[in-house]
Simulated scan of single mutants.
Amino acid sequence: MDFGLSNKAALITGGARGLGRAICLNLASEGSGIAINYRKDHERAWLLAEEIKEKYGVKAICVKGDVTSEEDVKRIFCEVLCQLGRIDILVNNSGICPVSMVKDMDLSEWNSVIGTNLTGTFLTSREMINMLIAQNKCGKIVNIASQSAFNGSKTGKSHYAASKGGIVSFTLSLAKEAARYGINVNAVAPGMMYTEMTAETLDKNMDKYKKEIPIGRIAELDEVARVVVFLASDVSSYITGATLDVSGGITGR
């Protein structure tokens, strides 16, 4: 199946590692140019860009910037437009997930999680929407939510769950606003994946988590990334405002 991604360009926030890295590789495999946004680890982002160029023969660049900063977000978009010439797809993947029970949580930690996960999604989406409207172009925004948006957390991640619940609601509202401009806005809600963020928890409780998943295993990153590719592609042209469940059956919504 042709996903119609050749000669398009995608900006992936937090794209240097984990799920973001898998999304970059899967979009590149379909012919899309890739802009890898990162905040700190330049070497990791640069190595991924080189891998993408060598393996798939598409353009790939690294763009440093903090999605919680309006100034940085504007600069990120300017750099990508300058180097790739266009941005057709935005994947809001940047996220942090420290662990703290509400009774012990500092306001600064709460603000940091909400700022990165939810406000960052707002800032980049706003920039993307205004850019596409000014260019009179269609486009795709894919936000990374989580099953915690629906199931909550009992392990000290209430701020993370709240931010992801906000992303689900924001996705629906923005989709309704942006539909008139030919811009599709959707989200993906993964279940358990093995990443740097989840490795410690999963290593301690792997059998427990597998038993809770109807499919009986943890998701491969590529399995989630391919759903992002679908939502970023022409194949999903009649889907907007949706949050797709990729949980192996945990939530099933």
Rank of each mutant, 00 (worst) to 15 (best):
T251H: 00
A162F: 10
V235C: 03
A179E: 02
S148M: 13
G120M: 14
D106N: 10
T195E: 15
T119A: 06
L25A: 11
I12Y: 08
T195C: 14
I141Q: 02
Y238N: 02
N93F: 03
I76W: 08
Y209E: 08
S146W: 05
N205H: 13
K103D: 12
I114E: 06
V227I: 13
K59M: 04
S69W: 03
A45C: 09
G18N: 06
G156C: 05
L132G: 01
R180K: 15
F77S: 01
L174A: 05
T243V: 14
M193I: 14
A219M: 11
K154M: 04
V229A: 05
V228R: 07
G65V: 07
G191I: 12
Q147I: 15
R126V: 05
N186H: 08
L48V: 09
S148E: 09
R39S: 11
Y209I: 11
L231Y: 07
A134L: 02
K204H: 14
K59E: 01
T121N: 12
V224C: 09
D207V: 10
K164W: 01
E196I: 05
Y38L: 04
N184I: 01
G15H: 08
G18E: 07
N151V: 08
W110V: 04
F3H: 07
L123Y: 13
S158A: 15
D222H: 07
I76K: 04
G249C: 09
R226L: 11
I87D: 11
N26T: 12
L202K: 08
A219W: 00
S158Y: 08
F230P: 03
K164R: 09
V102E: 00
E177Y: 12
G65H: 10
R21F: 04
D2L: 10
G252H: 13
L19E: 10
A242L: 03
P190S: 05
E223C: 08
V113P: 00
V246E: 07
C24H: 09
M206N: 08
L231I: 06
G249W: 07
M193S: 01
G139Y: 02
A134M: 12
F170W: 09
G15E: 01
V185C: 09
C97Y: 09
L132W: 06
I96S: 13
C82M: 11
A16G: 15
D234I: 03
K137R: 13
T116E: 04
C138N: 15
